[in-house]
Design a protein around this nucleic acid. Sequence first.
DNA 1: CCCAGCACGC
DNA 2: GACGTACGTGCTGGGT
Length: 654
Amino acid sequence: MMDLFGGGDMTGIHPSASATEINNSLNNRENSASENLFFVENGSETQEKSILTSLKSISHQYYLVENEEEILKLREKFLSENLISLDTETTSTEPMSAELVGLSFSTTEHEAYYVPVPAERSDALKILELFRPVYENPQILKIGQNIKYDLTVLANYGIELKGTLFDTMIAHYVLHPELRHNMDYLAEIYLNYQTIHIDELIGAKGKNQRSMRDLAPSEVYEYAAEDADITLQLYHKLLPELEKEGLYTLFHDIEMPLVPVLARMEMNGVCLDTDSLRQTSEEFTQKMQEIEQEIYELAGEPFNISSPKQVGDILFGKLKIVDKPKKTKTGQYVTNEEVLQNLKGRHAIVEKILDYRGYKKLLGTYVDALPLLVNPRTGHIHTSYNQAVTTTGRLSSSNPNLQNIPIRDENGKEVRKAFIPDAGCEFFSADYSQIELRIMAHLSQDPNMIEAFVEGHDIHRATAAKVYKIPLDEVTSTQRRNAKTANFGIIYGISAFGLAERMQVSRTEAKELIDEYFLTYPHVKEYMDRSVAQARERGYTETVFGRRCYLPDINSHNATVRGYAERNAINAPIQGSAADIIKVAMIRIDQRMRAENLHSKMILQVHDELNFSVVPEEHDRLQQLVIEEMQAAYQMAVPLIADCGWGTNWLEAH
DNA sequence: CCCAGCACGC
DNA sequence: GACGTACGTGCTGGGT
C-alpha cells in the first residue's frame, strides 16, 4: 500500500543502533553471539541449529518518512490499528538527558517506518505533535523493547504513552529470568535472525563513538526500522508463550502496570543536599589523608592502601602480624573487613587501614560521586530501576545505585542525610516489617511462627523464647541476637557451619540451635524440604504470584553446586514473593495518588521500603494511603505490617 | 578491557 | 578436606 513513501529500501547502507538497545545490553547480562551460527543446548551436547537470517536475506519494507503529508497518512494508518510497536533513536542511553533523533514504528511484521526528529527542540515538538494522537490513544497496545526508556524520553517531550504496554524484554524476563533479554539475543533465539549491530553504525564504544545525531537519516532508517519490526515479531512469539506457561497474569497485571510507575519515580528523581556533601567531602578527605600518613609511618614505607594486594604484602609479608594468613584462590592474602577486624589487636596499622578504607569507599562511591550525577536540568538525581535483571524478581537500581546508600556506619549516615525531599516537602519512609519471615510463616503454615506474628510479638525474641524454652521477658540480648541470626539463616538456607561462623559459637552449639529451631517451627523444615523437592521435580520454584526461578543445578552431582541451587530453592520463593508484593503495593499507591490528585511523589524503592517526597497538606492522607496499600497488597496467614517515619531527610525518616 | 577483591544495601 | 546464608552495583588495582 505505502508505495508513496518512496519505497525507501535496501540501499545497502550500513546499520546503526539505538540508544535504547545500548541501554538494554547495559541493563542485562552481557552480550551474545555475533557469529553466523548459533548453538542450542540439547541435553549435554550442543548441536548446530541453523544459519541465521538477516535483513539482507529476508524480504522487508522499511520506509524513511520525512515530509508532513506522508506523516499524516502514516498517522491515519496507525490510528486504524489496535497495536503498534515503537522505538526511539536518541543521543544518550540516559533517558533523562536523551534528545530524540528519530521515531520508528511497526504494525505489520517485516514492515516498518522511521521518522527523523530535528535537533531543534521546537521543530522536534512539531513532529511529535503529529504523532500525539497515536501515542496517546489508549485503545492502541504499545509494544516496545525496554519501553520504559521510550516512555521517559517521550514524556520529556510532553507525550504521554497511553494504553496497555507490552515490553518484550520484560516478557522474556518473566519467562526466563536467568537468561539475557537484549533484543539481539531474543532475535536470534526466537526469530533465528541476526540484527544489525549498533557498532556497525556509530562505531565501537570508546572515544570515537559517534552519536546517532551525527548520522544522516538515510544511514539510520534501516537500523531503526528493524528494531521496531523485530520487536513486533518478538511480541507475536512471546505473547503465546506467556499464555502457554501460565505467566501472562504476572506479566500483564504486575510487571506491565509497574513500568510507568517506575518511569515516574525515575523522572521525578531525588533531591540531593550537595552543599552538605561538599562539607562532608572536605572533612573526610582531610581525615583520610591524615590516616594515610600514619599508615605509611607504621608500615615504614608508603604503599597503595587501596590495593588489597599491597595491603596483604605489608601486613603479612613485611609485618608478619599473623602466622598462617588466609589466602584467596588467586594466592593473594585475604585482607577483607572480617579478617582485619580479628587482627585489630595485633598491630595499630590494622585499625587504620579499616578506617582508611571506610573513608575511601564513602568518598569514591557516594560523597564525591553523587553530586556529579545531579541532572542540571532538574536538579535531581535520576536512578534507573531495572526490571529485568535479578533472578528472584527484585528490582535493581543503577546509574547511580540508590539501593545501597549507607545506613549503619556513623560516617555513612552523612550520605543518607543528604537525600532530602523536594523544596517545601517532607520526607516519608515506609517499610515492611519482617516481610520475608512473614512470607515464610505463610508459605510454611507453621503454627508457632504464625502465632508469633498474629500475637504481634518481636519475632526474634519470640524465636529465642521458644528455642531456649524461657519466657519472652527473660530473653537476653545475646539469645535474641542468635535467634535473629538463625531466622536470617533459615531464609537463606544456611548450614550449621555457616550459622556457627555467624554466631561465633561452636559447630555443635550451632547444630543444637538449628535442631531446636526446627523443633520450634516444624513446618518450616517441611517447607524447606518441600521447596527443594519441588524444584527438583519441576526444575523451578514459584512465588505467590507464580513468578518462576529456574534452578537447573538442583540435580547436579557436584555437592557444592547442588547445595547452592538448594539454598536458592529455599530463598527464591521468599525473596521473590516479597518482591511481587511490594510491586503490587507500588502500582496501587501510584494509582491512588493519581486518582486522588495528590502532588506528593513516590521517589525511591529499596526492596522492602518505599520513600516519598510529600507536600505538607497531604501528610496524613498520604501516610494513610501508603500504609493501607502496602498492608493490603497480599492477604496472608499472618498480618502484613508496614512501619513508617517522617523527617527532613532520608536518615531521619527511616 | 576484564577480572579479583572489597564494600555498600536488603 | 573443601565448602561454608540469598540478591544486587560500583570502585580500585592490576594484569592483559
